[in-house]
Amino acid sequence: MGMAIIYFAMGIGFIYLAIHYGDSTWDLTSLIFAVVATLDFGVGFKMISDHFRSKNKK
């Protein structure tokens, strides 16, 4: 569960970087940061899902 929180924090950080350092919406830098943030959020949701799924099996 702790790693999921770290991934969510990294996702928020990459969104901040995409907004702060991107000159426009379609700038390559902001798109890369947005893609990495999306992957971080996806991994975080998957970890939380697996945590609750394994907790319910016990």
Rank of each mutant, 00 (worst) to 15 (best):
M1R: 09
M1N: 07
M1D: 10
G2E: 02
G2Q: 00
G2F: 02
M3C: 01
M3K: 06
A4W: 02
A4C: 05
A4D: 12
A4N: 03
I5W: 05
I5C: 04
I6Q: 01
Y7A: 11
Y7W: 15
F8T: 15
F8G: 14
A9P: 00
A9V: 08
M10A: 13
M10L: 10
M10Y: 05
M10Q: 03
M10V: 10
I12N: 07
I12V: 14
G13W: 08
G13P: 03
F14G: 00
F14D: 06
Y16V: 05
L17W: 02
I19C: 08
I19W: 08
H20A: 01
Y21P: 00
G22D: 04
D23T: 12
D23W: 06
S24N: 13
W26F: 14
W26G: 04
W26K: 09
D27L: 08
T29A: 10
T29E: 11
T29V: 13
S30T: 07
L31K: 12
I32L: 02
I32T: 04
I32D: 00
F33Q: 05
F33H: 03
A34R: 15
A34W: 10
V35G: 13
V35Q: 04
V35M: 10
V36L: 15
V36D: 04
A37C: 02
T38L: 07
F41L: 08
F41E: 06
F41S: 11
G42N: 09
G42R: 09
G42W: 15
G42D: 08
V43I: 15
V43R: 13
G44T: 08
G44M: 13
K46A: 08
K46F: 14
K46H: 11
M47Y: 11
I48C: 09
S49C: 05
D50R: 06
H51K: 01
H51V: 01
H51F: 13
F52N: 06
S54E: 12
S54H: 08
S54G: 00
K55R: 14
N56W: 04
N56C: 00
K57C: 05
K57G: 05
K57S: 13
K58I: 04
